[in-house]
Design a binder for these strands. Structure first.
Length: 212
DNA sequence: CCGCGAATAT
DNA sequence: TATATTCGCG
Protein backbone atom coordinates (compact mmCIF):
# COMPACT_ATOMS: atom_id res chain seq x y z
CA UNK A 1 0.00 0.00 0.00
CA UNK A 2 2.11 2.84 -1.29
CA UNK A 3 -0.09 5.61 -0.01
CA UNK A 4 -1.33 4.23 3.25
CA UNK A 5 0.13 3.03 6.48
CA UNK A 6 -1.34 0.90 9.21
CA UNK A 7 -2.88 3.82 10.99
CA UNK A 8 -4.63 5.11 7.96
CA UNK A 9 -5.86 1.63 7.23
CA UNK A 10 -7.08 1.30 10.79
CA UNK A 11 -9.03 4.47 10.37
CA UNK A 12 -10.63 3.28 7.16
CA UNK A 13 -11.58 -0.07 8.58
CA UNK A 14 -13.05 1.45 11.70
CA UNK A 15 -14.94 3.95 9.64
CA UNK A 16 -16.31 1.76 6.93
CA UNK A 17 -16.16 -1.86 7.90
CA UNK A 18 -16.94 -2.50 11.54
CA UNK A 19 -14.26 -5.13 11.91
CA UNK A 20 -12.08 -5.75 14.93
CA UNK A 21 -8.47 -4.79 14.25
CA UNK A 22 -5.31 -6.03 15.89
CA UNK A 23 -2.21 -4.16 14.83
CA UNK A 24 1.18 -5.79 14.51
CA UNK A 25 4.44 -4.02 14.09
CA UNK A 26 8.12 -4.16 14.89
CA UNK A 27 7.78 -0.62 16.06
CA UNK A 28 7.14 -0.69 19.78
CA UNK A 29 7.38 3.00 20.37
CA UNK A 30 4.85 3.84 23.05
CA UNK A 31 3.32 6.72 21.18
CA UNK A 32 2.65 4.53 18.18
CA UNK A 33 1.13 1.79 20.25
CA UNK A 34 -1.12 4.18 22.07
CA UNK A 35 -2.13 5.80 18.87
CA UNK A 36 -3.21 2.47 17.47
CA UNK A 37 -5.19 1.41 20.49
CA UNK A 38 -6.77 4.79 21.05
CA UNK A 39 -7.90 4.86 17.48
CA UNK A 40 -9.83 1.68 17.88
CA UNK A 41 -7.42 -1.21 17.52
CA UNK A 42 -8.23 -4.09 19.83
CA UNK A 43 -4.57 -4.51 20.53
CA UNK A 44 -1.11 -3.87 19.21
CA UNK A 45 1.26 -6.79 19.04
CA UNK A 46 4.97 -6.51 18.58
CA UNK A 47 6.68 -8.56 15.96
CA UNK A 48 7.90 -11.15 15.96
CA UNK A 49 4.72 -12.61 17.25
CA UNK A 50 4.91 -15.76 19.25
CA UNK A 51 2.71 -18.72 18.82
CA UNK A 52 1.15 -18.26 22.20
CA UNK A 53 0.02 -14.81 21.34
CA UNK A 54 -1.39 -16.01 18.11
CA UNK A 55 -3.22 -18.79 19.81
CA UNK A 56 -4.97 -16.37 22.10
CA UNK A 57 -5.35 -13.58 19.67
CA UNK A 58 -9.13 -13.73 19.80
CA UNK A 59 -8.98 -12.69 23.43
CA UNK A 60 -7.89 -9.25 22.43
CA UNK A 61 -11.11 -8.78 20.59
CA UNK A 62 -13.10 -10.43 23.31
CA UNK A 63 -11.58 -8.32 26.03
CA UNK A 64 -12.42 -5.16 24.19
CA UNK A 65 -15.93 -6.35 23.67
CA UNK A 66 -16.38 -6.94 27.38
CA UNK A 67 -15.25 -3.43 28.09
CA UNK A 68 -17.73 -2.02 25.66
CA UNK A 69 -20.57 -3.92 27.21
CA UNK A 70 -19.58 -2.90 30.68
CA UNK A 71 -19.32 0.71 29.69
CA UNK A 72 -22.80 0.61 28.34
CA UNK A 73 -24.23 -1.09 31.34
CA UNK A 74 -22.52 1.35 33.59
CA UNK A 75 -20.15 -0.96 35.36
CA UNK A 76 -17.49 0.97 37.09
CA UNK A 77 -14.66 -1.45 37.76
CA UNK A 78 -11.37 0.31 37.90
CA UNK A 79 -9.53 -1.09 34.94
CA UNK A 80 -5.95 -0.02 34.80
CA UNK A 81 -5.35 1.87 31.63
CA UNK A 82 -3.65 -0.90 29.85
CA UNK A 83 -2.83 -0.37 26.28
CA UNK A 84 -1.34 -3.04 24.14
CA UNK A 85 2.04 -3.09 25.78
CA UNK A 86 1.50 -6.20 27.80
CA UNK A 87 3.87 -8.07 25.64
CA UNK A 88 4.49 -10.37 28.55
CA UNK A 89 4.32 -13.38 26.33
CA UNK A 90 1.47 -15.44 27.60
CA UNK A 91 0.90 -12.59 29.97
CA UNK A 92 -2.60 -12.89 31.28
CA UNK A 93 -4.30 -10.97 28.61
CA UNK A 94 -7.17 -10.27 30.87
CA UNK A 95 -5.01 -8.87 33.53
CA UNK A 96 -5.35 -11.99 35.62
CA UNK A 97 -6.44 -11.63 39.17
CA UNK A 98 -4.04 -8.80 39.70
CA UNK A 99 -6.36 -5.93 39.06
CA UNK A 100 -9.24 -7.13 41.09
CA UNK A 101 -6.91 -7.92 43.90
CA UNK A 102 -7.99 -10.57 46.30
CA UNK A 103 -11.07 -11.67 44.42
CA UNK A 104 -10.77 -15.04 42.92
CA UNK A 105 -11.40 -15.38 39.27
CA UNK A 106 -14.36 -17.55 38.79
CA UNK A 107 -14.96 -19.45 35.65
CA UNK A 108 -15.83 -16.43 33.68
CA UNK A 109 -16.26 -16.52 29.99
CA UNK A 110 -12.63 -15.54 30.12
CA UNK A 111 -11.45 -18.92 31.23
CA UNK A 112 -12.16 -20.41 27.87
CA UNK A 113 -9.93 -23.39 27.44
CA UNK A 114 -11.17 -24.29 24.05
CA UNK A 115 -8.08 -23.24 22.23
CA UNK A 116 -8.57 -22.92 18.62
CA UNK A 117 -11.90 -21.76 17.44
CA UNK A 118 -13.10 -18.31 16.79
CA UNK A 119 -16.29 -17.25 18.44
CA UNK A 120 -18.76 -16.93 15.58
CA UNK A 121 -20.67 -14.29 17.45
CA UNK A 122 -17.72 -12.00 16.97
CA UNK A 123 -17.62 -12.41 13.25
CA UNK A 124 -20.16 -10.35 11.45
CA UNK A 125 -21.66 -11.64 8.27
CA UNK A 126 -21.19 -9.16 5.53
CA UNK A 127 -24.28 -7.33 4.45
CA UNK A 128 -25.30 -7.75 0.89
CA UNK A 129 -24.87 -4.59 -1.08
CA UNK A 130 -27.34 -4.30 -3.89
CA UNK A 131 -25.26 -2.70 -6.54
CA UNK A 132 -26.86 -1.59 -9.76
CA UNK A 133 -25.37 -4.60 -11.39
CA UNK A 134 -26.86 -6.94 -8.85
CA UNK A 135 -30.17 -5.16 -8.96
CA UNK A 136 -30.30 -5.41 -12.72
CA UNK A 137 -29.88 -9.13 -12.54
CA UNK A 138 -32.59 -9.15 -9.96
CA UNK A 139 -34.99 -7.18 -12.11
CA UNK A 140 -34.15 -9.26 -15.10
CA UNK A 141 -35.00 -12.40 -13.21
CA UNK A 142 -38.22 -10.92 -11.92
CA UNK A 143 -39.40 -9.95 -15.36
CA UNK A 144 -38.36 -13.27 -16.75
CA UNK A 145 -40.51 -15.06 -14.24
CA UNK A 146 -43.50 -12.82 -14.26
CA UNK A 147 -44.67 -10.40 -11.67
CA UNK A 148 -47.36 -12.63 -10.32
CA UNK A 149 -45.37 -15.80 -9.88
CA UNK A 150 -42.20 -14.35 -8.44
CA UNK A 151 -40.73 -15.77 -5.32
CA UNK A 152 -37.34 -15.34 -3.75
CA UNK A 153 -36.33 -18.88 -4.57
CA UNK A 154 -37.01 -18.62 -8.27
CA UNK A 155 -35.28 -15.30 -8.50
CA UNK A 156 -32.30 -16.64 -6.66
CA UNK A 157 -31.97 -19.51 -9.07
CA UNK A 158 -32.22 -17.32 -12.11
CA UNK A 159 -29.70 -14.84 -10.82
CA UNK A 160 -27.21 -17.61 -10.33
CA UNK A 161 -25.09 -15.91 -7.71
CA UNK A 162 -23.67 -18.47 -5.30
CA UNK A 163 -23.16 -16.35 -2.22
CA UNK A 164 -26.61 -14.85 -2.33
CA UNK A 165 -29.28 -16.37 -0.12
CA UNK A 166 -33.00 -16.53 -0.61
CA UNK A 167 -33.38 -14.34 2.45
CA UNK A 168 -31.28 -11.71 0.79
CA UNK A 169 -33.49 -11.85 -2.23
CA UNK A 170 -36.64 -11.93 -0.17
CA UNK A 171 -35.62 -8.82 1.63
CA UNK A 172 -34.79 -7.07 -1.57
CA UNK A 173 -37.97 -8.24 -3.19
CA UNK A 174 -39.97 -6.78 -0.37
CA UNK A 175 -38.35 -3.45 -0.90
CA UNK A 176 -38.78 -3.71 -4.65
CA UNK A 177 -42.49 -4.38 -4.32
CA UNK A 178 -42.92 -1.45 -2.02
CA UNK A 179 -41.12 0.67 -4.54
CA UNK A 180 -43.36 -0.48 -7.36
CA UNK A 181 -46.57 -0.03 -5.43
CA UNK A 182 -45.46 3.45 -4.59
CA UNK A 183 -45.05 4.26 -8.24
CA UNK A 184 -48.36 2.72 -9.10
CA UNK A 185 -50.14 4.72 -6.45
CA UNK A 186 -48.70 7.96 -7.70
CA UNK A 187 -49.68 7.17 -11.23
CA UNK A 188 -53.24 6.37 -10.30
CA UNK A 189 -53.62 9.61 -8.49
CA UNK A 190 -52.13 11.61 -11.27
CA UNK A 191 -54.38 9.89 -13.75
CA UNK A 192 -57.57 10.75 -11.93
CA UNK A 193 -56.63 14.06 -10.44
CA UNK A 194 -54.13 15.16 -13.02
CA UNK A 195 -53.49 18.82 -12.49
CA UNK A 196 -54.62 19.37 -8.93
CA UNK A 197 -51.69 20.53 -6.93
CA UNK A 198 -52.43 21.83 -3.50
CA UNK A 199 -54.83 19.04 -2.66
CA UNK A 200 -52.54 16.19 -3.55
CA UNK A 201 -51.78 15.19 -0.02
CA UNK A 202 -55.23 15.34 1.44
CA UNK A 203 -56.64 13.49 -1.52
CA UNK A 204 -54.13 10.77 -1.18
CA UNK A 205 -54.97 10.32 2.46
CA UNK A 206 -58.68 10.36 1.79
CA UNK A 207 -58.35 7.77 -0.89
CA UNK A 208 -56.19 5.63 1.35
CA UNK A 209 -58.61 5.75 4.25
CA UNK A 210 -61.43 4.72 1.94
CA UNK A 211 -59.43 1.79 0.76
CA UNK A 212 -59.13 3.05 -2.74
C1' DC B 1 -40.33 -29.34 6.38
C1' DC B 2 -40.43 -25.63 2.92
C1' DG B 3 -41.18 -21.17 0.85
C1' DC B 4 -43.54 -16.82 1.50
C1' DG B 5 -44.10 -12.35 2.83
C1' DA B 6 -45.58 -8.98 6.41
C1' DA B 7 -43.86 -7.24 10.36
C1' DT B 8 -40.25 -6.06 12.93
C1' DA B 9 -35.34 -5.46 14.17
C1' DT B 10 -30.74 -3.65 13.45
C1' DT C 1 -32.93 4.21 4.42
C1' DA C 2 -31.06 -0.47 3.38
C1' DT C 3 -30.77 -4.91 4.66
C1' DA C 4 -31.54 -8.70 8.07
C1' DT C 5 -34.25 -11.53 10.99
C1' DT C 6 -38.43 -13.25 12.91
C1' DC C 7 -42.64 -15.49 12.74
C1' DG C 8 -47.20 -17.19 11.42
C1' DC C 9 -49.39 -19.33 7.46
C1' DG C 10 -50.51 -22.52 3.82
Amino acid sequence: MPDMDGFKLLEHVGLEMDLPVIMMSVDGETSKVMRGVQHGACDYLLKPIRMKELRHIWQHVFRRRIHEVRDIEGYEETQMMRHGLDQSDDGQLFGGGDLTSGKKRKDNENMHDDKDFVDPSLVKKARVVWTVDLHQKFVKAVNQIGFDKVGPKKILDLMNIPWLTSENVASHLQKYRLYLSRLQKENELKASFGGVKQLDLSLRDAAASLGL
